[in-house]
Design a protein around this nucleic acid. Structure first.
Lengths: 198, 198
DNA sequence: GATAAATACGAACGTTCGTTCTATTATTAG
DNA sequence: CTAATAATAGAACGAACGTTCGTATTTATC
């Protein structure tokens, strides 16, 4: 690996951490440079502009999420076990708190939902992809005859995502330890409604 | 009403609108002053500091929400009708889009969940109060024998809030017109699980 | 080890930020 | 109408912002 690539990676790790705390827009090149132990100009040279740095930060945090939540779930058996693992990984990732300020992408939604541009597009397409992945795992559960044939994958994915959003909200704001339990119970209820009869 | 009170109100209206778009932290006194047609110093004199302005803005947006969503729902019959009205008003408020940049309080959560201080405290207590109001309406629905006696009000409130969060997310990010329908369906099924037998 | 290329630095740019000060104007109360 | 008070303006502050530029230093290639 190039020296440049190495420092670029180190910068992005710091950047994801910082963005988690102060938001994508709240990132300041000066603060980030100090944290990375280098000069402002030396840092920004790796990205060209702040917007490009923001997008790179966004992608990096997406990769982290993928690796921590999605990929391990895909190694579980098709159908309900996979869906339950998805929630479990997600909750673990939430409560583990790798990022001190919460999910970068969720923060970016409220920051950029009304600001057209590259950043918003990256955020939106990321969440569309995510929702698609959930819906797909639902379709698989239907194919495996774990869920009823008339289950609407998008409705299920909507409600699944709702559970995660609420869990994240409560965890971040109230540090409520019952959040995980509540979320699991909610999924159980959601599944029970669509579960295929034996 | 005093002259001072008048302008203070006018400022806060502009401030809520601005905070909706750029976040509570993103508010700049200069921009707000220009929008209100006055000077920076003249504006900030009404609040003392930016933090106080932020808190006042937060309170004002809470009042708006209360008036648009909670209060009208409380005029509906006790029990399920009231709960359904709560969601209906909430969705209407969402899709009506009085605020150009989405809910100020939801934005403040991701901004301040990891920054201790007056602003965070105001946000957190606001959401605790809100959750309590939902749980109370669930307890009433139980008392009215619309829901089963063993219904957990907090679990129900968690799931209810989850639906609204997901609806807000999808509406802001994807402007998906099926959001409202999805949310209503989700509540319908949430209710069906706890509904008391006749 | 020499040389070309990549990488980093430091200084400076023009803006904008929140806040403070004093002076001036507008409002209210007697 | 007058006197006291409240409200606003304007200028200035030090700090931080993202970006640019020329130069120095480190890394990679032969």
């Amino acid at each position: 690996m190039n020296k440049g690539e190495q420092t670029r990676n180190a910068i992005l790790d710091k950047s994801v951490e910082l963005a988690s705390q102060v938001g994508l827009e709240g990132i300041s090149i000066g603060t980030l440079a100090t944290g990375a132990g280098m000069s402002k100009s030396g840092l920004i040279a790796h990205f060209g502009s702040k917007e490009q740095l923001q997008i790179a930060t966004l992608r990096r945090s997406q990769e982290r999420f993928q690796k921590a939540v999605i990929t391990p779930a895909l190694r579980r058996p098709r159908g309900l076990p996979r869906i339950e693992a998805l929630l479990g990984n997600w909750l673990d990732w939430l409560e583990r708190g790798d990022l001190p300020g919460g999910c970068v992408m969720l923060g970016a939604v409220t920051e950029y939902d009304d600001r057209p541009g590259l950043v918003r597009d990256t955020v939106a397409s990321g969440f569309i992809e995510l929702r698609g992945a959930i819906a797909k795992s639902v379709r698989i559960a239907v194919a495996e005859r774990h869920l009823q044939a008339d289950t609407d994958p998008w409705q299920f994915a909507f409600e699944f995502f709702a559970i995660v959003l609420a869990a994240a909200h409560d965890w971040r704001l109230h540090a409520d330890t019952r959040v995980s339990q509540r979320a699991r119970l909610a999924l159980e209820r959601l599944v029970s409604q669509y579960r295929a009869p034996r």
